[in-house]
């Protein structure tokens, strides 16, 4: 009966992705209850340390989502973030962290359905690879 449920950290920018999550809620779109959302002003605020801390704390996956290119409320925060993630993601994979463990997406304020889809996909991806062991403290 106690089927394993992954816990996933979702770091969402306030202006687009968090608004997308709100829209998914208001539209009563159903998605897996596995994500724990942290709201930040902009994806540009995301320091790779946060993602690694999330993994180390034992989250089975981390999703970071910001505004689509060009939509950033702060003009270019998501471009800065993108460059950072563009290095982080391959590096994590290089050391052997499963590719689906950490994922990035752009979700706009109007994409409630996409938010639900992204969360569903990330949850399924992580369910497939199982509980996080790599980089987890005490694992």
């Amino acid at each position: 009966m106690s089927e394993w449920q992954p816990k996933i950290l979702a770091i969402l920018c306030n202006w687009c992705s968090y608004a997308g999550a709100d829209l998914a809620g208001v539209s009563r779109m159903q998605y897996p209850p596995n994500v724990r959302v942290v709201r930040i002003p902009c994806s540009g605020r995301v320091d790779p340390l946060m993602i690694l801390k999330g993994l180390q704390s034992g989250f089975d996956g981390v999703l970071v989502s910001g505004c689509h290119p060009g939509d950033c409320h702060y003009i270019s925060g998501n471009f800065v973030a993108r460059r950072r993630f563009a290095v982080l993601k391959p590096l994590l994979e290089f050391v052997g962290v499963e590719p689906d463990r950490v994922q990035f997406s752009w979700i706009s304020a109007g994409e409630g359905e996409r938010f639900a889809q992204v969360v569903t996909k990330v949850t399924e991806d992580i369910r497939k690879i199982g509980p996080a062991k790599r980089l987890v403290k005490g694992a």
Binding site: F79, R84, F104
Partner: peptide, 16 residues
């Protein structure tokens, strides 16, 4: 320096 910069049309193959 690369990490103090960005281009709008950069490769984003790692984004879902």
């Amino acid at each position: 320096p690369a990490m103090a910069d960005f281009r709008e049309d950069e490769n984003q193959d790692f984004i879902m």
